[in-house]
Design a binder for these strands. Structure first.
Lengths: 274, 274
DNA sequence: TACGCACTGTGTATGCTATACACAAGCAAC
DNA sequence: GTTGCTTGTGTATAGCATACACAGTGCGTA
């Protein structure tokens, strides 16, 4: 009953955390989990997640396909490890600039670090890899003086990373579909296509958005025509800003309300009614 | 230059929107996109998305595998159609109860309707199916009197659906991993596993959360032991409530601020500083 | 020093997958 | 009736993840 059994920790994860434990007895390994993961990530970065097959990863490493299975239990496990590896370590956060700034930086850094293919791999459950945990730690630290409880901070971090994930997914999809054209161009075309399909009577709101003049107009490239098509950076997107601000604003408001209720339940803030 | 060319609308989507256009010339079809999609959805509901292969769908319909390709261009397209079909039509919203209530209802309805396997299919880009558009329309209507601009409302709807998606994914994953055990039990086990791996010195915040007494304790089933394992309903999860409230609160705040700036830029609200 | 044995990488084989291609049958328009 | 498009079918192919038996390698022990 006591904590003696190590549950289904995938073994390769143990190696990632430095819990090797076993003594080296046989032939010295020419391969390692890290090398495999690195090769797979490189492949995904260059040719997309679809190009990551066990055979190709092995070929890229100059070993046979089955050699990989000595270090990784399955392709699914490899994908999970890839996601963790691609996340990398979190950046230093400006913790003394206030929780809001720190969290904002955190989210933008995460968005920047999240490669497009990461969102294509099916959800890998609760984070278990070292980097994932490190990001979680950083997020929790950013929110330390927000006034929220620990569990709520976890919820916020989860929500934010989900938001980043979602946004990256959309950008990635558009980028994939684009075939080199600019993002705005794709969105423009999508809008035109959809406008031909929807019935303005059944879908007035959608139609209104689709028909908006400042959108239907040809999208002039905003900046100096930089290669936004090459590196889709969510932080560039004004929609990203809005959604992020939205979430952070909500966090602030909830934290504030909670603080009031906790510290001084009788005291009501001025003009905080409604 | 004029709008004469129908862009790459996948044809089967056209059929979904009722734009059949072509006259029936050859043999009368015994199959239809809807029947295929329905069969695929049924299969996914029963045995998971992994069980959905072209062969099995065809077998389930009593036709040959290749017959499907007369109505669906590829498996990817079928998946997209499945997602739209599984969404179904949006519910009636209490629009006169205020945007916040309406949006809350909208999000919970979406969470309820989102089957677990839906989040497993890779992002299908901007919504194009009739049901997806209908949900978008409903969301925009819910937010009509929020005071936000049309584009911001789109951003909010996108963010919310992403949030629902994210949450469903996590629940789904736990549910898959569980193998029948209750959700709390899984979370408990995950916590214990992770607690053995993380170094409290490097990850103080995470460790603190993992060590929290009220969580490490055995999780008593909250309700009357209902079959929460069978139907993972995100709306049951308090975490879901918190995140949703967070986003909606942020929306309210931003809308409020925007209204102030737009209507009367010179007027500063009392006690709205910081 | 020699043996055993755990461990590493390899080659082959299997079953499943999506999908291209050529064909046969049905039915409207001419 | 003939033509030609459309629909369903059978066969074939290439790619995939992965099981299994085998061969080399080097540490711990006799």
């Amino acid at each position: 009953m006591a904590g003696s059994d190590p549950p289904q920790v995938p073994e390769s994860l143990q190696r990632l955390w430095g819990v090797s434990s076993v003594v080296a007895r046989g032939a010295r390994p020419a391969l390692s989990v890290d090398r495999i993961v690195a090769a797979a990530i490189e492949l995904a970065d260059e040719h997309g997640l679809a190009a990551v097959s066990m055979g190709r990863v092995a070929e890229h490493l100059g070993v046979s396909t089955m050699a990989l299975y000595r270090h990784v239990a399955s392709k699914d496990e490899l994908l999970t490890l890839m996601v963790d590896g691609a996340a990398g370590p979190p950046p230093e956060l400006p913790l003394d600039a206030g929780w809001r700034t720190a969290t904002d930086v955190w989210a933008r850094a995460l968005a920047l670090r999240t490669r497009g293919w990461v969102v294509e791999v099916p959800i890998s459950g609760p984070p278990l890899g070292p980097n994932s945990v490190a990001w979680m730690e950083a997020g929790l630290q950013a929110l330390r003086d927000s006034g929220l409880g620990p569990l709520e901070r976890v919820a916020v971090v989860t929500t934010l990373s989900g938001y980043v994930r979602q946004h990256t997914a959309l950008l990635q999809d558009m980028h994939t579909r684009s075939g080199g054209r600019a993002q705005h161009e794709i969105e423009f075309e999508w809008r035109r296509t959809l406008a031909n399909l929807v019935d303005p009577e059944r879908f007035p709101e959608v139609s209104a958005v689709l028909a908006m003049a400042d959108l239907a107009a040809d999208p002039g490239t905003p900046a100096d025509g930089a290669d936004a098509a090459d590196s889709p950076d969510p932080a560039d997107d004004p929609d990203f800003d809005f959604g992020l601000a939205c979430i952070l604003e909500g966090v602030a408001r909830l934290a504030e309300r909670e603080r009031d209720e906790t510290v001084d339940p009788t005291h009501t803030r001025i003009a905080d009614d409604r």
